[in-house]
Design a protein around this nucleic acid. Structure first.
Lengths: 210, 210
DNA sequence: AACCCTCAGTAACAAAGGGCACAGACTTAC
DNA sequence: GTAAGTCTGTGCCCTTTGTTACTGAGGGTT
């Protein structure tokens, strides 16, 4: 664990902090598709993502979903952090997009480290900044772009995150993430196929070039 | 200035911090409608809002706008803070919604205080949390609600923020904030008037009950 | 083979929202 | 007063997106 942390976080964390994380943190390995955090849940420890990807989504009262953003290696969920610090319930759901390796750090340590380690403070701040910016991107995308563009962005991001140009999702799953309907997704995908940007198959999509 | 700070922030800030803010901060009074921060601008000091309200909005490349949220007494703009800390350009525009009194704090002090004062750290964190939650609300609203509802929410919020049930805006201005067109706003407002929720006038709207 | 289930394609229609055009009311400048 | 400019109301039509309903293809089970 230590060398992994060093590899990923060494530009942020000083050695004593790394040692503390090794000592206090608990490593977990989660297969793809698991819900690791849900709406309304209280949070007692904070995840640092060592490998894999996590998708973070929002849900309204009627169960409609919307993908907010992905977390990747070295990142952490600021929304979660905010919940920890504020001791409030989670506002979002987090699901592993790929198999993932995560260090869980107890909340109390977080506060302690904020005072103690400059590196930790910087990391936490940068995380907030990144999350805010991602959220702004999300806002842009739903406010200013039409579905065609949003779908393309979604597919691009998916390929990037999974490092696989075969997207193993059904049209229905994509529709959930974009908060639209299956029929609409099928329609637009067909259009993209005609434009030779991808090839459709049952249960997966082969992305050529977006 | 000191007693104002005490009144608003005393539950967060310890006395020595108040003293430092009084010493380092610069108070400015800004009339309604002024742009106090713009997209692409570098930021050297951070605003703490003593009184009044500030609206924060996003703009895309084509100049389309969207209201993100309002800042009210005692709040600060986390997006700005993130820019400060990351030394990047502003991603948003901030405009005074009413006359406002603001303390501007130099960025360098911020970092110093983060290490030095627990109260400052808590304040900064809570601000982040509040902003993130507001942004999530904004996402919900554009993703899950239709324009009727968004317009009503907008008017409600406006009354709350300006403490005035006469909304002194043209339909065009409302349309900008909601990122839609004037015609659509006029249409929906008329509908609300027919439902006796408000009375329309030239240049202002008298809100009855939403 | 017959059956079942999930997934994808498609047509037809509905609804929400946006764009254009124009009219009328009010405001300000002259 | 007239003229010019701004703001609002409304009718009509178009585009985008959502809904319903049905079809058939693929794959697994018995």
């Amino acid at each position: 664990m230590e060398e992994e942390l060093l590899g990923i976080f060494s530009n942020y964390f000083e050695q004593p902090l790394i040692d503390e994380i090794v000592q206090e943190g608990k490593i977990i390995e989660v297969p793809a598709g698991e819900t690791i955090m849900d709406i309304g849940q209280y949070i007692r420890s904070m995840p640092l993502l060592l490998s894999g990807a996590i998708k973070v989504l929002r849900e309204d009262d009627e169960g409609d979903e919307l993908l907010l953003y992905y977390l990747e290696q070295g990142e952490t969920c600021s929304v979660t952090m905010a919940c920890c610090m504020g001791h409030t319930k989670s506002e979002i759901r987090a699901i592993t997009e790929t198999d993932a390796k995560i260090v869980m750090v107890p909340v109390q340590k977080m506060e302690e480290w904020m005072a103690k380690y400059k590196g930790w403070r910087n990391y936490v701040f940068d995380s907030y900044q990144n999350r805010l910016n991602e959220l702004l991107q999300t806002v842009d995308s739903i406010a200013f772009k039409n579905l065609d563009q949003r779908l393309m962005d979604y597919l691009k991001k998916k390929v990037e995150v999974t490092k696989d140009n075969r997207i193993r999702s059904t049209h229905q799953e994509i529709a959930y993430d974009l908060h639209t309907s299956r029929v609409v997704v099928s329609r637009l995908l067909k259009k993209l196929e005609k434009m030779k940007k991808l090839v459709l198959h049952r249960n997966y999509i082969h992305v050529i070039d977006l």
